[in-house]
Amino acid sequence: MSISVVKAGLLDSIQDMGRYGYGKWGINAGGVMDAFAARVANMLVGNCSGEPLLEIHFPGPQILFEQNALVSICGADFSPMVNDEYIPLWKPVVVRRNTVLHFPKLNRGARCYLAVHGGFCVDQWLGSGGTHLRAGAGGWKGRPLKKGDELSFKENTVYFSGLLKEDRIVRALPWRADIKNTYHHAHEVFVLPGNEWDVLSLPSKSHFLENNFMIHPSSDRMGYHLKGLPLAMDHELELVSSGVEYGTIQLLPDRQLIVLMADHQTTGGYPRVAHVISAHLPKLAQLRPSECIRFIMTDMVTAERLLAEQHRELQVLQRACLDHLNELVC
């Protein structure tokens, strides 16, 4: 075995980049909430960016390393520690076996990702190794991790052990990912107008764009319920159900908004006021209940350009990480 769960966290599940192709069966894509942090975590340890990895919420788990490992933790800062040593985020770290990773304090963010070099052995279901929590399939036995679970690594990472000095339990390798562009202006979220945007009343349109919305405590991987000034439509709409997407912002009958997140249903029937652009889903995924969002309207060209820029940064990072790792082990 490679890691074992000493204590389960609030919700620790194996996720990947989503299970696409089964919408016709009502099976949603799911996958990681913050695809940027998850990709970076994988790249730092030399994995394919879409390798299934562990998504961790606060309070986090306690995880015993049963063998030496090259790991990285990206996304939210839950002040990760190995035994009594803090380990840095957004960096590859070699960890000695028989040590315990734990997360004593929430500093910022909503979920972090633990990647291990080589990846975890997980269950594939419909072409994806992510956990579909509703269906109870894929990932780690179709469920969140619990105490006593033992997850194996796909690869033996013994050749990184030489990087550990004899008296040390961890060693952070000397490079890190630059993440400023993705998470700056953390509370400003760009949106595109939805099909029912024009049916919003004029005052509601200005409320939407000029006021803050607070993320309600009932928010989870399915959706963020927002609390703000009640919004109204110019006239009542009867919509038959149709497809929705991660980032779709719907107006609910109680006149409040919901942003659909990674575990959203495949279809919905509420008015689609707007859609969060893909490049800003990572920072939205790192906002916590009681934090505020401000929506900023943008256009399709900008949305696609921002996503392409984010992608280029990731490509550069991936190349650099592989070069660094190769230098170390050769």
Partner: peptide, 21 residues
């Protein structure tokens, strides 16, 4: 193209914009 969602009277294509272009 990632997925095709058919509903009552609508069809939705889910796609990866980077791959499409």
């Amino acid at each position: 193209l990632r997925d095709v969602i058919t509903a009552y009277s609508s069809l939705t294509l889910l796609y990866n914009p980077l791959e499409v272009t």
